[in-house]
Amino acid sequence: MDIAHFLDILWLARIPILKGLGVTISISLLAICFGTILGVFVGLALTYGVRPLRWIVRGYTDFIRGTPVLVLVLASYYVLGTIGLDLGPFQAGVLALAVFCSSHVGEIVRGALQSIPKGQTEAAKAIGLTFPQTFAYVLGPQALRQILPAWVNTAAEMVKASTLLSIIGVAELLLRTQEIISRAFMSLEFYLFAGLLYFVINYAIERFGRYVERKTAVPS
């Protein structure tokens, strides 16, 4: 491996790499945000929804979780177009990842809410809190602390899954890297470099998660 030569090429390719990195980060952020918001509703419906709603949402999460992300990406790009919903590759990709994310977050939220002892709800009821109040002050804050570690995992999964959007032509980090490799013929170096960037993003997410965990930890 010729380090000097690699650094030369890397410098020349800095703009496309940075652009790719920017796209990867925006896709991941959007997917995680929308996916989390939708996922919280999915989790609430799974936990507190009336029976028919619960069945529908349960079907949704099981179906999505049982489907490869790549299939979701291809479906949202190619299939939605056939029913008149023409999304660009970027939007289609974000949609697919957000939907995937929501099914996972939904399960995490459901698990967290159901793991809170029934006595918590009863104690809240006994002092006269309504259900929305109970959720806002008693259940929600406790669930949040439990959700965090698993949510960080899911967020990191989303960053990794964003590479799949290269298939439908979204110029994210992996696709940019491949373009550079096809010109410079330095696959080992650039794949390693891209891998390093992905690692940095996920490491940052993990540190952030740890930080929030520490900040919200309950002393005992």
Binding site: P117, G119, A123, P141, R145
Partner: peptide, 12 residues
């Protein structure tokens, strides 16, 4: 007002 066997204080 009710006091429970398991206390049920809000841990957070």
């Amino acid at each position: 007002g009710m006091a429970f066997q398991q206390f049920n204080l809000f841990p957070h």
